[in-house]
């Protein structure tokens, strides 16, 4: 886990500041289809199904509630 934290810190401290776009270059990034989660319920249902059927879960966010899924 330590190396992951190091990579994470490195990403934050370097690199990032030289990337990106100006505000007037956000036409494509602003589209619905370019959002990280463009389809809310697609993502919601997928998370719910795989939570019920697989041994791992999470990664995308915290919270969300549990179930006694069979």
């Amino acid at each position: 886990m330590k190396w992951l934290m190091s990579i994470f810190a490195a990403l934050v401290l370097t690199g990032c500041s030289s990337m990106g776009v100006e505000p007037w270059e956000r036409d494509l990034l602003a589209k619905d289809s370019m959002q990280l989660v463009p389809d809310y319920f697609d993502n919601f249902y997928d998370e719910h199904i795989y939570f019920s059927k697989e041994g791992s879960s999470g990664g995308q966010g915290v919270g969300g509630g549990g179930c006694g899924c069979n």
């Binding site: 886990m1 990403l11 990032c16 990337m19 776009v21 270059e25 990034l29 990280l36 915290v62």
Partner: peptide, 26 residues
């Protein structure tokens, strides 16, 4: 009881690309 922690970064790379990285502990 379930306790989750997460940190994340979202970065715009260029006009056409965006990336996200999350680290979670539960």
């Amino acid at each position: 009881t379930i306790i989750d922690f997460m940190v994340g970064i979202t970065q715009v790379i260029d006009r056409k690309t965006m990336v996200q990285l999350n680290l979670s502990l539960g």
